[in-house]
């Protein structure tokens, strides 16, 4: 217990927690992107992947709750550190703040992080909870079923979601700031956990920028492809199929889903 108390109280311990939780979240966003890039395969691939993730409720919620705890830890530590850092300089300098070797991303971690949290909230409501009132399209996300398998049609949902250009634009801003956050965050993670030395330092910095660029381009590719028309015909087909399915279904079946 003494170890935990020192971990949560010392500035270095809080940085370990910050870096550790950040590292887990980086692994998640990389995995999330690799999974989502199946969007460029035929629709059945993404739908099967969606079904795989959703079908085991116990594992699904274990992962969800773990990620939620990690996100909360990252945010709580960020705010605690921010408060103690501010308290360390009660009187500000009269000269305007200049960076002296500090990158813009390193000085704006809290702001970029908070915008990413706001984006994450929208993203979950949009594609996970599927609140129909915020998706900006007449397509009812809840009713999309893949013709043939009856699995939830993730591919059609993504196409319908990103065909609304303001939504696609907001996604661009969200992943843009996430990548910006990570250009510094990934490099700082190695520093905070002590995994940096004169040999690794330049490699780590380049790898952090490379990873941020990969995430940015990867995540932007999906809404961009949709805006260029990918999946439009498939979406129409799915919507018509669902309309027929719902018309034939006995009353109440959709509610009981």
């Amino acid at each position: 217990m003494k170890l935990l108390a020192r971990l949560f109280r010392s500035t270095l311990g809080q940085k370990y927690l910050m870096a550790g939780s950040g590292g887990v979240l980086v692994l998640f966003v990389v995995g999330h992107l690799v999974g989502n890039l199946q969007f460029f395969l035929p629709p059945a691939a993404l739908n099967r992947y969606g079904h795989l993730l959703q079908s085991n409720v116990e594992v699904l919620w274990l992962v969800r709750l773990t990620l939620l705890a990690v996100v909360l830890l990252h945010i709580v530590m960020a705010i605690r550190l921010w408060a103690s850092n501010r308290a360390a300089r009660p009187v500000a300098y009269a000269s305007s703040a200049t960076s002296y070797g500090a990158s813009l991303s390193s000085r704006t971690m809290l702001v970029s992080g908070l915008v990413v949290v706001a984006f994450l909230g929208y993203h979950l409501l949009h594609f996970t909870v599927r609140v129909e009132s915020i998706n900006g399209t007449p397509v009812a996300f809840h009713q999309l079923r893949e013709p043939g398998t009856g699995y939830y049609d993730v591919f059609a949902m993504v196409v319908a979601g990103f065909q609304v250009w303001p939504v696609a634009l907001f996604y661009g801003v969200g992943v843009g700031l996430l990548s910006f956050h990570l250009t510094h965050g990934v490099a700082a993670l190695f520093q905070s956990l002590g995994g940096r030395n004169p040999v690794y330092a330049p490699v780590i910095r380049k790898a952090a920028h490379g990873l941020a660029a990969f995430l940015l381009l990867g995540y932007l590719s999906i809404p961009t492809a949709v805006l260029f028309g990918r999946g439009n015909d498939y979406l129409k087909h799915v919507v018509e199929h669902n309309a027929r399915r719902l018309a034939q279904a006995p009353p109440g079946e959709e509610v009981a889903r």
């Binding site: 500035t11 308290a87 300089r89 070797g101 390193s106 700082a188 190695f190 520093q191 330092a201």
Partner: peptide
């Protein structure tokens, strides 16, 4: 004292050019 955000400005102004590697 505050915590380290790894901005690197300390290394940039240090009159003895102490490296950030020591923090790691």
């Amino acid at each position: 004292f505050g915590a380290c955000t790894v901005t690197g400005s300390c290394e940039a102004v240090c009159p003895k050019r102490i490296s950030l590697d020591f923090i790691a």
